[in-house]
Design a protein around this nucleic acid. Sequence first.
DNA 1: CGGACCCAACTGGTACAACCAGTTGAGTAT
DNA 2: ATACTCAACTGGTTGTACCAGTTGGGTCCG
Lengths: 233, 233
Amino acid sequence: MTPSPRIPLSASIFARIRDGILGGRPAAGESLASERALAEELGCNRHAVREAVKRLQQAGLVAVSHGGATRVLDWRVSGGLDLLAQLPFTAGAAPDPALLRSILELRLCVGADAARRCAERAPAPVVDALRAALDTQRAADPDNAPLRYAQLWDHVIDGAGNIAYRLAYNSLLAGLDPDDELSRALFGAEVRDIEAVRELVAAIAAGDPDRASDAATGLLARALQTDKEPARG
Amino acid sequence: MTPSPRIPLSASIFARIRDGILGGRPAAGESLASERALAEELGCNRHAVREAVKRLQQAGLVAVSHGGATRVLDWRVSGGLDLLAQLPFTAGAAPDPALLRSILELRLCVGADAARRCAERAPAPVVDALRAALDTQRAADPDNAPLRYAQLWDHVIDGAGNIAYRLAYNSLLAGLDPDDELSRALFGAEVRDIEAVRELVAAIAAGDPDRASDAATGLLARALQTDKEPARG
DNA sequence: CGGACCCAACTGGTACAACCAGTTGAGTAT
DNA sequence: ATACTCAACTGGTTGTACCAGTTGGGTCCG
């Protein structure tokens, strides 16, 4: 009955090595321990280590070479945006302010431009979906508000007609839990400001890119201000 | 599988299944063939398939569940920006115009904002590095110009002091070969326009965010125009 | 007949053992 | 001092067996 809470062994190995690398334990340029050594050290089979290393490789954290040692790469150079969700962030402990600001700035940058592009093209189905989402958000109880707000942005991203924006948006959201306390603190203001959301939708429906961009910027910039002044009365 | 000399077997399996999924062969929601079936079908060992599936899982293309079948996900929903480099693009054949435009638009969006942020903070070492890169670019022979131009942008991204921008930039570049014919056609104009680059560097050095953003936009928008009018005499 | 239960046949997850195939570096022969 | 050789690494691949969940059909009971 209970949905399997069991995480695969290779996943925990991946997480362990990843955290070490992100923490600089095997520094960039150094060599990762051999698969056999890691397997023995962790008391598991080599295949589990291999699967984990394959994921590390894909994430751009290490470079493997047949016959030679697998070297640790500088993740700031070779890592992709998907690493954002991997960076120490989820645990309530110590959300790095610089990292948080980085994420929020990118969200602002991409979100505002997505709103602009969405207003430029403004496909009718998306406009309809936005209006519907807006109506449901206004009528919704506060508990579901974040979810509906997220769905609204989903439509904006789709309306931009840009697959790269969509994927970047996915990467940004991958590390965020909507029900997280931090998320509520950061995005609560924009979730509740229905009038600002209404202005965004209206701008997109009107096909006014500049207005849509401004509206989106106004909405998305709040989290950055919240970040600067976390608990101002 | 075909005896590929250099690339690991699991990599070719990964590529094969990935291409199938991106082509909709196992459509989203459907089940991927079992590991044992894939291993037999591809004439290889199950471990190789497992390593490939692990990568597919990390890329957000499939969801594996112990005991159940691994389901194919909608990559537009669950895929990260790293998928951009995986999308059928590198091969000279048929660079999807919409995909190309998506990439160039995101590059423009992030690049312009990175230039803005870089001008806002304008750390002295980065400004020095930018000036040095500019000088070397002016003196460089045309063959090395693209490389030096890319390094210049590297410094701009670093100067923005935003790790998310850096990772997004990495993801964008992952699928692009600087020496590719397509890249030359797209970016040749901005690489050669040293005066525009000079203006960008000057704006950043002056700590003028709006000016830097405008300069970056002017530079990066050219590829989009090139895209629209591929071969205008 | 309808529902709860059980079990066989899947699925992925892990393990051990062995071997192939490149790389590396110490040691040797020149 | 240089060039070559080769043993001892490294990752890459294979095979098999078993564990651990999920699923669906069949059975048994109400």
